[in-house]
């Protein structure tokens, strides 16, 4: 059943991505000021939203663990955070490439970039913490607490675009009160978001299964050592 879901999600995501790539590269015209490089937004923004969505879902899963002490919820939280961290890395890398072309520099310490990097570092710390703890319940407990703390920090990231004057382009999408993209140009972005979200869901399902199996293997190993 799980395999079928994973395959279906991946297949649909693949189809949407292929159709979107066709539209992004062959249908949508170059942006008036930025030229061809603006197309990176079709991956940069959906990856950023996917990673943030993931971090928050993981927080709820972590809270669920703290309330129920069900280790499965911890596995889910860890899997979601891992996939979200991968998407956060995509956001940082694509943003950096865009910055190199438009700003002429790979990186600038503007508050929004910095905040995103801080988030990335916090979640990298999350996995370092998990690695450092052998006992599964202690690992689940402490990483759940860290996940909650990290999400509160993310609020500061989201708010930072309003709080600080930044070098980063202001909100572009219609829903955030920006000037908006041309209607034909914005649609592929949301389709890409959907596709990346489905891809993330498939990856999370795979990782959760691995995490659960790892727990079972560890338990069996401890059981074997006890004899």
């Amino acid at each position: 059943m799980r395999l079928k879901i994973i395959l279906t999600l991946t297949a649909i995501a693949g189809v949407i991505l292929a159709w979107d790539l066709y539209r992004i590269f062959l249908v949508v015209p170059d942006e008036a000021n930025q030229g061809a490089i603006f197309r990176i937004i079709y991956f940069h923004v959906p990856a950023a939203i996917t990673s943030f969505t993931g971090f928050y879902l993981a927080m709820f899963s972590s809270i669920g663990y703290l309330m129920t002490k069900n280790l499965r919820l911890d596995s889910i939280a860890a899997s979601i955070n891992e996939v979200s961290l991968a998407f956060a890395s995509i956001t940082l890398v694509t943003g950096s490439i865009w910055g190199r072309v438009i700003w002429g520099i790979w990186w600038t310490w503007d508050p929004r970039l910095t905040s995103f990097f801080v988030c990335w570092l916090i979640y990298a710390g999350y996995f370092m913490l998990r690695r450092a703890i052998d006992d599964p319940t202690a690992r689940a407990r402490l990483s759940a607490v860290l996940s909650i703390f990290a999400c509160v920090d993310i609020v500061l990231v989201w708010k930072s675009i309003e709080w600080f004057r930044t070098q980063h382009p202001g909100p572009v999408l219609e829903i955030r009160g920006g000037g908006g993209m041309a209607p034909g140009m914005e649609a592929p972005l949301w389709w890409n978001f959907l596709a990346l979200l489905m891809l993330a869901a498939a990856l999370i399902l795979i990782r959760t299964r691995q995490e659960t199996m790892q727990l079972e293997i560890d338990a069996l190993r401890r059981h074997a050592h006890a004899f």
């Binding site: 801080v118 570092l121 990290a150």
Partner: peptide, 13 residues
């Protein structure tokens, strides 16, 4: 090692 690695990013704001 873990304490500074975890604490400094959290403290940034």
């Amino acid at each position: 090692l873990m304490l500074p690695t975890l604490v400094y990013p959290m403290l940034i704001p």
